[in-house]
C-alpha cells in the first residue's frame, strides 16, 4: 500500500521559496492502476520523484508497505528503490550495446543476486512484459521503440517491486506502439501489479482505473475511471 500524507515540497533559491507541492494526500491500494494527470507546472514531475524515492518531501510522509521513505539518506533511498519501486521512463534509458537480457537483469546486480538466478528472473520478467524469447540476446539498440519500452517494463518488474512507476511511458512512441505498451501495463495490472502512471495525455490516462488530477501543487480531482472499471467488471 502506498500512502502520501500531506506532502509538501518547496524549492529554495536563495531567499526565494517556490512551493511546488502544497499538501498532497492520497492512498493507493495494492493492485490499483492510477494515472496522475496535470498540466505542466502542476507539480506532476516533483510528485513522481517523491513517489519514486528519488527525492524527499519538505514536509509530510510517504510510505510504501508501511516503510517511510520521507527522510532517507542517499544510500538508504537507493536501497528502497531497489526493493520497492520499478521505473519505466519516457526515454526507456536502456544501456546501449548491452543485450536485452542484461538490461533487464541490471537491477538484480545491485541486489547481489547470483548470475544464473538473475538470468532466470530476467527471462520471466521479459515474458511477463510480452517480449518474444527470440530477441532476448539482441542488443538493446537493435530493437524497435515499442520493444524497447517492453524491455524497460521487464526491467522494472524484475525485482518484483511493490510499485510500478511509469513516467510518460508512451511519450516517445507513436500511438499504435503506445497502445501495445499500455496494453502490456493493463495486463500486468490485471495480474495484480500496482501501477502509478504519470501522464499529461487524457487518452493515455483513460487506460487507468483511477485518475488523480493535479493543479498548482494540489489534488483537484481524484476519481474512479468509470469507463475502465465498468468495462472490466
Amino acid at each position: 500500500m502506498i500512502e502520501c500524507r500531506n506532502i509538501t515540497k518547496t524549492y529554495k533559491n536563495g531567499d526565494m521559496e517556490t512551493p511546488v507541492l502544497k499538501g498532497i494526500t492520497f492512498t493507493v491500494n495494492n493492485g490499483e492502476y492510477v494515472a496522475i494527470m496535470g498540466p505542466s507546472g502542476s507539480g506532476k514531475s516533483t510528485l513522481m520523484h517523491i513517489l519514486g524515492a528519488l527525492d524527499t518531501p519538505t514536509l509530510g510522509q510517504y510510505l510504501i508497505d508501511g516503510h517511510d521513505a520521507s527522510s532517507l539518506t542517499q544510500d538508504e533511498s537507493a536501497d528502497f528503490r531497489m526493493k520497492k519501486i520499478g521505473f519505466v521512463f519516457q526515454a526507456f534509458n536502456l544501456l546501449p550495446r548491452a543485450t536485452v537480457l542484461r538490461n533487464v537483469a541490471l537491477p538484480l546486480i545491485y541486489a547481489g543476486v547470483p548470475k544464473e538466478q538473475r538470468e532466470q528472473r530476467a527471462k520471466n520478467a521479459l515474458k511477463a512484459a510480452g517480449m518474444d524469447e527470440a530477441r532476448f540476446k539482441y542488443l538493446s539498440n537493435q530493437i524497435s521503440g515499442g520493444q524497447m519500452q517492453r524491455v524497460a517494463i521487464a526491467r522494472a518488474l524484475v525485482n518484483n517491486p511493490s510499485l510500478l512507476l511509469a513516467d510518460e511511458p508512451t511519450g516517445n512512441l507513436d500511438s499504435k506502439t503506445g497502445e501495445i505498451v499500455l496494453a502490456t501495463l493493463e495486463k500486468l495490472n490485471e495480474e495484480g501489479r500496482t501501477i502509478v502512471m504519470i501522464t499529461h495525455e487524457p487518452d493515455v490516462a483513460a487506460h487507468a482505473k483511477r485518475i488523480i488530477m493535479l493543479r498548482d501543487g494540489l489534488i483537484v480531482k481524484d476519481e474512479i475511471n468509470k469507463d475502465r472499471v465498468i468495462s472490466t467488471t
Binding site: G52, L54, Q74, D75, A78, D79, R81, M82, K83, F87, F89, A91, N93, L95, L106, P107, Y110, A111, R155, N159
Partner: peptide, 16 residues
C-alpha cells in the same frame, strides 16, 4: 550521465 542516473534509480548506491 543518463546511465548513471538510471543505475542510481534502480538501486545503485554511490559506492557502487
Amino acid at each position: 550521465t543518463r546511465e548513471i542516473g538510471l543505475r542510481k534509480a534502480i538501486g545503485g548506491k554511490n559506492r557502487d
